[in-house]
Design a protein around this nucleic acid. Sequence first.
DNA 1: CAATAAAAGCAACAATGTTGCATTATATTT
DNA 2: AAATATAATGCAACATTGTTGCTTTTATTG
Lengths: 141, 141
Amino acid sequence: MNMEKDIKEILKKNQLSVTASREKILQLFIDHSGALAHGDIERKAGEKFDRVTVYRTLQTFVDKGIIHSIPTADNSVRYALCKDNCEQGHHHDQHIHFVCTNCNNTYCLDDVVTPQIRLPKGYSTEHIEVVVEGICINCKS
Amino acid sequence: MNMEKDIKEILKKNQLSVTASREKILQLFIDHSGALAHGDIERKAGEKFDRVTVYRTLQTFVDKGIIHSIPTADNSVRYALCKDNCEQGHHHDQHIHFVCTNCNNTYCLDDVVTPQIRLPKGYSTEHIEVVVEGICINCKS
DNA sequence: CAATAAAAGCAACAATGTTGCATTATATTT
DNA sequence: AAATATAATGCAACATTGTTGCTTTTATTG
């Protein structure tokens, strides 16, 4: 399969010029099923690219709706591919995230939809983020 | 009201020696209804205390179950008081968190219980974190 | 292929988080 | 209440992470 072409097309579809760093970093996300922390990406792509480029590329991808960031409680933001055809400046992922406490991987559980939350009177909802911690399917004994 | 005494007692109840920095930082949490970012605390208490002390005090409070950390998607961990009588090394807060996109405050909605999440086969749940973004009751127009 | 626009690289800096150790404060014991 | 043991603080130095301005390089367009 000609994945390389797919990557170029993803970039073009998002009105991004095709550069080596963008191809490489997007490739990382496609190859890796789980989420990637900035540090992971910097380690895997950082030999070839400047740290600043990694930061800016990730930011660009988030802005374009190619990846989304996943909240954590320990100051280590992670990113994963958007699968819900997010558009520029408007993410609408509806899946939950799962963090394995054993292998520390983060997964997007695309089939698990975020639940409705009934808020107290006066609060309005724009976006709901659900992160479940537990043992993933690869680590269960 | 003699709040000072309460603070000392909270510390003692958690087998912590009563020190000026712990009193001050715990006071901040009690006075402030929402969550506090590390930066907030450092700014409010940092004139009197060393940055390192703030880090260590927060870590101690988390370990003891006095405060809990709230995940965010932008690398700015926030902390809030535990109200569900968490014990040392074992948090069992069951409330959701609400981040106002207008005033940027984070609230613990103690009355809103985290929903059940049905995970795919093979995944087991240890902890569920729900963060809702929207407009809070103080900012609604 | 040249011109234009955009991205990458570089350097310097700012902010955030960590560690070891000497000093100081707290709690405990007598 | 003072001495002692224990624990927390402050300090310095360092490591990591994130940001900004500017120059050079690369990609796209005609």
